[in-house]
Structure formats: C-alpha cells, structure tokens
Computed example of a mutant assay.
Amino acid sequence: MTAISNGNYFKVRGKDLYVEVYGNADAYPLLYLHGGPGESCYEFSYHQAERLKEDFRLIAIDQRGVCRSEKIQGNEHFSIDEIIMDCEALREELGINRWALLGHSFGGYIALKYATMFPDSITRIVFECPTFDFGLSSRSLLRKMGEICKEEEMGGLGEKCFMLADSDSTAKELMLKFIEIRPEIGEKGMKIHVHNFSHKTDYSRYTDGEWKRFLERSNVHVNRLIGGGEMFESILSSLKKLKHPSLLIRGQYDPVTSKEQVMRYQEDVAVANVLTFSNSGHFPHSEEPDKFSKSVVEFLK
C-alpha cells in the first residue's frame, strides 16, 4: 500500500521541519516519532499512512536535522530535548490540544521522555519495538549478530560479538562496536532487524542523489546525538512515572526491545499492554502492516 506524500515544511523554533499530515483535521491526532536515530518517517508513511488516515489525523515528521528537514549546523545546540521541544511547538502550531504518540525504536525513547516532560500534551502512547536502554539493546543486538555469524559460518566474528555482549563495556562503546562490526556480514546483516521480507518499500520517489544528500544530513543528527552521550542514559526508571495508557508492540524476532526491557515495562507501567507479532522483527509496521494498523486503531480508538 503506497502512501501519497502530504509533506510540507513548518518553521519550528527557527528550523524548517519536514511534516506529513494525513486524514481529517478533526480526527484523533497521532504523532509518529521515527527511530534510528536519523531514520526518517519515509518508510513508516509508505506502509501506514493510507492504512491509518481513515481513523486518525496522522502527523509524521523527519526530526530536526534528519533527511528532508533542515540540516543541523556545527554551532547549533542540539539534544534529545530539542526534538521534544520541536514536537511541542508543532503541536501548538497545528492547533492540537492533546495527541497520541507512536514511537518506533529510538522514537519510543523520545516518546517516553516527551510524556514525562509534557504529560498534559499526551493522551495515549504506542511503543513499537522501543529501546529504553541503549546498553541492553546493544548487547541484545550483538548477540543476534553473533547468532547470524554462526549460521553463516563466520564463527570467529560471532564469538567476538558474544564476548562484547557479555563484557563490561559502556552503552556507547557497545553501540559503536555494533556499528563497526555490522558491515562485515554484508547483506546477511539485514536479518538482524528484519524477519519478514514480504513487504518492500519503494524508495524511487527521490533520486539517488537526493537520498545521498538526505543521508548526509541524517549523519550529522546521529553523530551529534552520539557525541552528546545523552541517548546512552537509561530511562527505564521513567517507566514508573508513565501514567498514560500505553501499548508495546514487539516483533518476536526483534533484538532491540530486549526481554529485560519488556519485563520492566510490564512491571512498572500502570496501564500497560503488550502485543507480540509472531512474523516480525524490528519493523512490525512494515513486516505485518495490516495487523499493525488494526492493533493501533483498536488500542487508540
């Protein structure tokens, strides 16, 4: 199912923010927060905008400095809080009193921080394969990569992954090691995050040159977040502060939302629901798109 882009630019806190809006203006507002960091909303909108726009006023953004949004400059202050403040300013700009959040992966991290900073702006939250602790997620990712290496008879590299996962390295060190090793297993590395390859994303809306330019912007966003280090602070303790009804959607084969994080969510969140998609990895919204949209509608409506 292909979404027709409803993209536009909003001047938000001095920066051009790329925003897509789908559905009726008086429908239940839902903000999509992409992961990565630096992933963009393109892939989500491609698979879900047409499915969700009948029930929601779906707002999907490329976060500050990502892909189609204005580039972050070298002397510009930037942090996770800047992303959250952008969301708040956009909510006011769109005339929305309160909205629901749908945060994928790192977007789930942002959604939890947003809900604790501005609880009165949020109605409900859908966490899709979130990370609340980059250390736990990175260890789990390294173990998954180790398993794939063993399957592909790359035993030495697999052992290296397992040793790193069990080491006392910091969250930042673990993530950087994962990023460093990942290219060594080539296309097989897709299996770390994706289980069901049935639903492809068409990226031909933009040229290769445009995607290259978008990637360069996103890399600045990612490098600034990694350099700042804030994203490596665990926010698992914030789950106890979450009073909004929430749903955690996880893929059975997703390594990012590790078992420890699912357990903490179930134990600490006052109104918590967990759905496990049996034919998905890290992207239920594109691996099982119809089931995903139905689950979101049922929970939010």
Rank of each mutant, 00 (worst) to 15 (best):
residue 140 S to R: 05
residue 141 L to F: 10
residue 141 L to G: 03
residue 146 G to L: 08
residue 146 G to P: 11
residue 146 G to N: 07
residue 148 I to K: 13
residue 151 E to N: 04
residue 154 M to R: 14
residue 155 G to N: 12
residue 159 E to Q: 15
residue 161 C to I: 07
residue 161 C to Q: 07
residue 162 F to T: 07
residue 163 M to V: 05
residue 167 S to M: 12
residue 167 S to P: 09
residue 173 E to R: 07
residue 173 E to T: 12
residue 173 E to K: 11
residue 176 L to M: 13
residue 176 L to Y: 00
residue 176 L to D: 01
residue 178 F to V: 03
residue 178 F to K: 02
residue 179 I to M: 11
residue 179 I to K: 08
residue 180 E to P: 00
residue 180 E to G: 00
residue 182 R to K: 12
residue 182 R to S: 09
residue 182 R to T: 03
residue 183 P to A: 01
residue 183 P to D: 01
residue 184 E to T: 10
residue 185 I to S: 08
residue 185 I to D: 08
residue 185 I to Q: 10
residue 185 I to N: 11
residue 186 G to Y: 05
residue 187 E to R: 14
residue 188 K to W: 14
residue 191 K to L: 15
residue 192 I to R: 11
residue 193 H to A: 15
residue 193 H to T: 14
residue 195 H to E: 13
residue 196 N to I: 14
residue 197 F to S: 13
residue 198 S to M: 14
residue 199 H to I: 02
residue 200 K to N: 05
residue 202 D to H: 07
residue 204 S to A: 07
residue 206 Y to T: 00
residue 207 T to K: 02
residue 209 G to K: 05
residue 210 E to L: 00
residue 212 K to H: 03
residue 214 F to A: 00
residue 214 F to C: 02
residue 214 F to N: 01
residue 214 F to W: 03
residue 214 F to M: 10
residue 216 E to Y: 02
residue 218 S to L: 02
residue 219 N to W: 09
residue 220 V to W: 10
residue 223 N to A: 09
residue 223 N to C: 06
residue 225 L to S: 11
residue 226 I to Y: 13
residue 227 G to P: 10
residue 228 G to N: 15
residue 230 E to T: 09
residue 230 E to D: 14
residue 230 E to M: 05
residue 230 E to K: 07
residue 233 E to A: 08
residue 234 S to C: 12
residue 234 S to Q: 10
residue 236 L to K: 07
residue 240 K to M: 03
residue 241 K to W: 02
residue 241 K to Y: 04
residue 242 L to A: 02
residue 242 L to I: 04
residue 243 K to H: 02
residue 243 K to Y: 01
residue 243 K to C: 01
residue 245 P to C: 05
residue 245 P to M: 06
residue 245 P to S: 10
residue 245 P to T: 07
residue 246 S to N: 09
residue 246 S to F: 03
residue 248 L to Y: 01
residue 248 L to P: 01
residue 249 I to W: 07
residue 252 Q to P: 00
residue 256 V to W: 00
residue 256 V to F: 02
residue 257 T to K: 03
residue 257 T to N: 05
residue 258 S to K: 04
residue 258 S to H: 08
residue 259 K to S: 13
residue 259 K to Y: 06
residue 260 E to F: 01
residue 260 E to C: 00
